[in-house]
Amino acid sequence: MKIKIERKEKPDKPKKQKKIPTIKVGTHKKLTISLWVLLIGSMSFGIYKNFTAIDMHTVHEKEIIEKQVVDTNSIESFTESFVKEYFSWQQAQDLQDKRNERLKNYLTENLQQLNTEMIRSDIPTSSIVTSFQVWSVKQHNDIEYDVLFSVGQQITEGESKKNLTSTYSITVYVDEVRNMVVIKNPTIDGKPQKASYEPVLSDSDGTVDATATEEINSFLDTFFKLYPTATEKELSYYVSNQALDVINKDYVFVELVNPVYTQVDNQVTVIVTVKYLDKETKVTQFSQFELALQKNENWKIIR
Rank of each mutant, 00 (worst) to 15 (best):
L95R: 10
S136P: 00
D71W: 08
V172C: 05
P11D: 14
A92T: 11
Q153A: 02
L164P: 01
A92K: 08
S236M: 07
Y227E: 08
D12H: 11
I188L: 12
K15L: 09
V25G: 02
Q263F: 04
F219R: 08
E6Y: 10
V70Q: 03
K10T: 15
I47C: 05
Q68G: 02
I301N: 00
P11G: 07
L148I: 11
I20S: 05
L114E: 15
Q112W: 01
M1P: 04
Q288I: 03
V254L: 12
Y227M: 06
T222G: 01
L291V: 08
N73R: 15
V264K: 13
L95T: 10
D205M: 06
N73W: 09
E159Y: 03
S202M: 15
E198M: 10
V257Q: 13
T273A: 11
K29Y: 14
Q93P: 00
K84T: 09
V172Q: 08
T207E: 08
E198S: 11
Q263R: 14
I23Q: 09
Y145D: 00
V177C: 03
V260C: 00
L164K: 13
V70R: 06
W135V: 02
F289E: 04
I119N: 06
F149G: 02
T116Q: 09
T108C: 05
K10G: 04
V134W: 12
A230G: 07
M43C: 10
M43N: 07
V246R: 09
I64D: 12
V246H: 01
M118K: 10
I128R: 04
F286I: 03
F149L: 05
F219W: 09
K13F: 14
K29H: 10
K30R: 12
Y48N: 11
A243V: 06
E117Q: 07
K2I: 13
P21C: 07
V274K: 03
K29V: 13
T32K: 05
V37D: 06
T130F: 12
R99S: 11
K279P: 05
T130D: 15
R7L: 13
V174R: 09
T187I: 08
R102T: 12
L277N: 13
K62I: 11
K162L: 10
Y238R: 06
Y197F: 14
T229C: 00
I247Y: 05
K98N: 07
N296K: 10
N115I: 04
D175E: 14
L256D: 13
Y48I: 06
P21Y: 03
L201A: 08
L107N: 02
F82Q: 04
V257Y: 10
V274H: 01
E157N: 06
T171K: 11
Q263L: 05
L31E: 15
G41A: 13
N266P: 00
L293D: 00
V70F: 08
A210R: 09
V83M: 01
W36H: 10
A195N: 14
Y168N: 12
G158C: 04
Q263V: 08
Q153M: 12
I170W: 01
E101T: 05
Q285W: 06
S196I: 01
K104S: 07
T165M: 08
G206R: 12
T207Q: 04
N73P: 02
T58R: 10
F223A: 02
I75F: 04
T213M: 14
K295Q: 14
K62V: 12
S287R: 11
T27W: 12
D175V: 02
E280Y: 09
N258S: 07
M43I: 14
F45W: 15
